[in-house]
Amino acid sequence: MLKETSIHKNQIILQTGYFDLKQTFECGQCFRWNEVEQGHYIGLVKDKVLEMYQVGQEISFYNTDEKDFKDIWVDYFDLNRNYEELIEEISKEKIMKAATEYGKGIRILCQDEWETLISFIISANNNIPRIKKILERFSKLFGQKMCYKGEEYYTFPTPESLQGITEKDLEEIKSGYRAKYIIDAVQKVNESQVDLYNLKNLETGEARKELLKIKGIGPKVADCILLFSMRKYSCYPIDVWIRKVTEKLYFKRECTPKEIQKFAEDMWKDNAGFAQQYLFYYARNQL
Rank of each mutant, 00 (worst) to 15 (best):
A98Y: 08
D47Y: 03
G150L: 00
Q38L: 11
L199E: 05
T158Q: 03
I7W: 11
M52T: 10
F251T: 08
K140P: 10
D270P: 15
T100G: 03
R137Q: 06
S60Y: 13
Q29V: 02
T246S: 13
K94W: 04
C147A: 12
V74E: 15
E203T: 02
P237E: 10
T246H: 07
E93N: 10
D223C: 02
K9P: 02
E89N: 11
E265Y: 14
N201H: 15
Y278I: 06
K252G: 11
E254H: 14
A264D: 09
F120L: 08
T5E: 12
Q29D: 06
I182D: 05
R81S: 12
F274G: 00
I95R: 13
G164Y: 00
S161Y: 00
Y41S: 15
Q163T: 09
I165D: 10
I182N: 07
R208D: 01
D75M: 09
N126F: 05
S60A: 14
M230L: 03
S60G: 14
K168N: 12
T5C: 13
N34V: 07
E171Q: 14
Q29P: 11
K67W: 08
Q193P: 00
L170A: 02
K145D: 04
Y76R: 12
Y233K: 07
S161M: 01
A179L: 01
C27W: 02
K145P: 02
R130D: 01
S60N: 13
F228N: 04
S139Y: 00
D169P: 04
I108C: 02
F263R: 12
G28P: 07
V186W: 01
K248V: 08
I59W: 11
K220E: 03
K149S: 11
N10L: 10
L227I: 08
V245A: 06
I87N: 10
E88G: 09
P257S: 06
E167G: 14
Q38V: 13
C235G: 03
R81M: 15
V221A: 02
C255D: 11
G273N: 02
W114G: 06
W73Y: 11
I7F: 13
I87L: 14
E89A: 12
L287T: 05
D184M: 07
V74Y: 06
G105Y: 09
G205D: 11
N34F: 14
